[in-house]
């Protein structure tokens, strides 16, 4: 860890002001401190936002506003979330460990960096860590890597769970920065790597996430299915967030998002269009999976994610639509 100066902002505005002079925001630190120890992140200046007002959750006419500093644990424990947006609670509870969720924050988790082993190893080439260095993962051990949204520069996944649920729930990321406040639909928040994998999301320099807003509850059946190599405390191989409403035996409305499948949390409206208005069946789920995965590309070790995603989709839709019929 390189030496750095640590400042404590006492308000969001103060933090944004401090960021004008460069620096990196720290909230829970569960990802940043990890990266700083390995010098994958090496900021000269770190600005803590722990003393700011961003730790509040509030319900208003537009939905639920979750402050950037709200911990994952508090968010998942919140009875409003559990009753009306259970998908979000389920996704958060599927992630990390209780200790990490007690420290990790809403804003920080949105900015969580990839778990690609080549990104995490400074002896290896990585365009995300070191633009222009090349991508050692493409022809390396890439079992956990993305099959959608990849580029020649990068095949790393966004590894988190919370954002996948938020994507299915049409959340909006609220930010403030030098050019004022912004409302960024979460579908537009994470960036696909293209030829610049170093930027994971669309935040501009000096811009700070202040909150995430969940729109009004859908009332649907909400499930989060995380498939991983051990039963807990592991990143997803593939995860599926489902929010489905049934009407007279047919799928009236649905939202589907996928984690660890693409380079970003993945949602494809065309998949939902295949499903809406139809009676659930194995054949229908397979059709939806085909649409989802038509451009999916494996690199050998991660080929299995393609059939796995189709299977996880079928299992989760099957469960949700059965529950929705009941």
């Amino acid at each position: 860890m390189k030496a750095f100066a640590l400042d404590h902002a006492t308000s969001a505005q103060g933090a944004i002001h401090a960021l004008q002079h460069g620096g990196t925001v720290i909230a829970g630190g569960t990802n940043l401190v990890d990266l700083m120890k390995l010098q994958i992140a090496a900021p000269d200046r770190v600005i803590s936002i722990r003393r700011t007002e961003l730790g509040e959750m509030a319900l208003d006419g537009e939905g639920l506003r979750i402050g950037a500093l709200v911990t994952n644990a508090d968010c998942a424990a919140d009875m409003r979330v559990r009753e009306h947006w259970p998908l979000l609670a389920k996704a958060i509870l599927a992630g990390a460990s209780p200790q990490l969720r007690n420290r990790a924050t809403t804003g920080g988790n949105l900015c969580q960096r990839t778990r690609c082993g080549y990104f995490y190893d400074t002896t290896q080439a990585c365009n995300k860590r070191d633009p222009g260095a090349g991508c050692a993962a493409r022809s390396g051990f890439n079992r956990i890597h993305a099959v959608l949204g990849t580029s020649d520069s990068c095949i790393a996944t966004y590894p988190g769970d919370m954002a996948v649920a938020m994507l299915a729930l049409d959340a909006v990321v609220l930010t403030e920065g030098p050019s004022g406040p912004r409302e960024i639909p979460i579908a537009a928040f994470h960036r696909m790597p293209g030829d610049d994998p170093s930027r994971d999301n669309v935040l501009e320099a000096g811009e700070l996430i202040t909150a995430v807003r969940l729109p009004a509850p859908t009332g649907g059946i909400q499930l989060y299915r995380k498939v991983r190599d051990r039963a807990s405390y592991a990143f997803a191989l593939v995860s599926v967030a489902v929010d489905v409403t049934m009407d007279q035996g047919r799928i009236a409305r649905c939202a589907l998002a996928f984690g660890s499948l693409g380079t970003v949390p993945w949602r494809d409206p065309a998949v939902e269009q295949v499903l809406i208005g139809e009676e659930p069946s194995a054949a229908l789920f397979a059709k939806a999976a085909n649409v989802l995965l038509k451009d999916a590309k494996g690199l050998g070790a991660n080929d299995f994610k393609i059939p796995l995603a189709a299977r996880a989709l079928a299992a989760t839709l099957n469960e949700a639509t059965q529950a929705g019929k009941a």
Partner: peptide, 25 residues
């Protein structure tokens, strides 16, 4: 243990990616 065949380095050299069983297993 996952070794990279190009240089013999161990790719999953931490407890996040080398999966020892946890309580839930």
């Amino acid at each position: 243990l996952a070794f990279d065949m190009r240089d013999g380095h161990l790719v999953n050299h931490d407890l996040a990616e080398y999966h020892v069983p946890v309580h839930a297993d």
